[in-house]
Amino acid sequence: MLVISAIIISLIPAVLVAYPIIRKIASKSPFPEDESSLKADLERRWESALEGLRHAELEMSVGNVSESDYLWLKQVHMTEAALVLKTLEIPDKEKGFLIKQTSLDSGYEEDN
């Protein structure tokens, strides 16, 4: 009984490690998006710029930052967002939409 049980529990991991190699399941599927690709990096920077804008809007709306600091912060993040868009190969029409999106994203601007 012990021998049979031992064989069974040894077979399970053996099958698990052999299956992906024999059936080549990973290499048959399309390449996943590379986390280090330019696009992925730009997406992170885009997200960071938008987060910065949202944050600046939030700080302004709750009265945490002065007008001059707010304008400076907004300028910095808009420049970052614009730089990201400039690097991307997307049509000008979409760039315009995305730039507009940056100023709408905070949720506060919408109300104002």
Binding site: D34, L38, W46, L88, I90, D105
Partner: peptide, 19 residues
């Protein structure tokens, strides 16, 4: 959704990893 960039034409495999 609000934070996503659209699908754009950027090199997906810049390190040239072969299959």
């Amino acid at each position: 959704k609000r934070l996503q960039l659209p699908n754009v034409n950027v090199d997906q495999n810049p390190l040239r990893i072969s299959e």
